[in-house]
């Protein structure tokens, strides 16, 4: 029971990171129908920026807000300057461009902050570990039903829950949310009734990148450091989450993220010989494959009807 609870909470706290990245994927997919392969790397860039703010002595609470602002700017600028003009050409061109951005951002991070994991005393980092949003000293845990649960895990899960509620409030009760839903439903018609589609899409990309930035910071906090490969597997898990939940359903992305987190942690925990740490990502792969084969629209997505 203790072990089960511990794995559940661990799964949920990792799953919340996947949920955040998956939310970003879904928001962009709903708006423009593109899959943003650079989502993870945009988040990674913001995470490095937050590390840098930490080096300058800015407390993590403020640094994460600034980092999300940087993420928002990066996402919005990407949409306006690159994705919008290229999406007039072909879906394939958009795919290639997001792959290009993936590579470009990763290289850029490496060029500025180097290939080693940070914080690193070897390169003169003042911080000992990546700043966590919640207390994460070895003594910071609470005991529930005999299981020792980290305060950090609970904090992360709570944070994502609050953020999800806030996002749903934005989607359902604000003008921007209404406009975003209109654009998602039918871009051309939304344009005709006077919604500035361009601005909405810009805001969507910005929002997605800002949420991703939060996910990156949270994950780096759990991981205690940030490195160039941090987001590779997270992106795979997140896309599995978005596939499971349905690519056009934000609620599905959150549920999918938590599910993937739990599934892979339970699988790795209860079958250490067969799955263990190595094949965790294989579980996500099988979930993704299974969902696409059996129910391509995901659990909560709307199925696409193709006209010829």
């Amino acid at each position: 029971m203790e072990l089960f609870l511990q794995r559940l909470v661990d799964g949920l706290s990792e799953g919340s990171v996947y949920a955040l990245i998956a939310l970003g994927l879904v928001i962009i997919y709903r708006g423009t129908g593109h899959l943003n392969f650079a989502q993870g790397e945009m988040a990674l860039f913001s995470t490095y920026v937050v590390y840098q703010f930490g080096e300058w002595g800015i407390p993590i609470g403020i640094a994460v807000v600034l980092g999300m602002a940087v993420g928002f700017t990066l996402g919005a600028a990407t949409e306006v300057a690159i994705v919008r003009p290229i999406s007039k050409k072909s879906p394939f061109a958009v795919f290639i461009v997001t792959i290009g951005l993936f590579q470009l951002l990763n290289w850029f991070d490496g060029a500025i902050w180097g290939g080693q994991q940070l914080p690193n005393s070897g390169v003169g980092s003042k911080q000992v570990r990546f700043p966590s949003l919640f207390p994460n000293a070895p003594t910071d845990f609470v005991t529930i039903f005999g299981a020792n649960i980290k305060v950090q895990s609970l904090g992360v899960i709570g944070l994502v829950a609050v953020l999800t509620v806030a996002l749903f409030a934005i989607f359902n009760h604000t003008r921007l949310g209404l406009a975003m839903r209109a654009v998602a439903a039918n871009g051309d018609s939304a344009n005709l009734v006077g919604i500035r589609t361009g601005r909405v899409l810009m805001a969507s990309w910005g929002l997605a990148a800002a949420i991703g930035a939060l996910g990156g910071v949270v994950f780096a906090g759990i991981n205690t450091n940030v490195n160039l490969g941090l987001m590779f597997t997270v992106f795979i898990y997140a896309s599995a989450a978005a596939t499971l939940g349905g690519f056009d359903s934000p609620g599905g992305a959150v549920i999918g993220g938590f599910s993937i987190g739990i599934i892979q942690n339970m699988a790795a925990g209860y079958a250490p010989k067969w799955i263990g740490q190595e094949m965790k990502v294989g579980v996500a792969f099988l979930v993704m494959l299974g969902v696409l084969l059996v129910r391509p629209s995901g659990l909560f997505g709307t199925s696409r009807v193709e006209r010829v």
């Binding site: 050409k89 290009g100 290289w107």
Partner: peptide, 8 residues
Amino acid sequence: ALALVVLM
């Protein structure tokens, strides 16, 4: 990476 974006 830049070439990929520009070439498109």
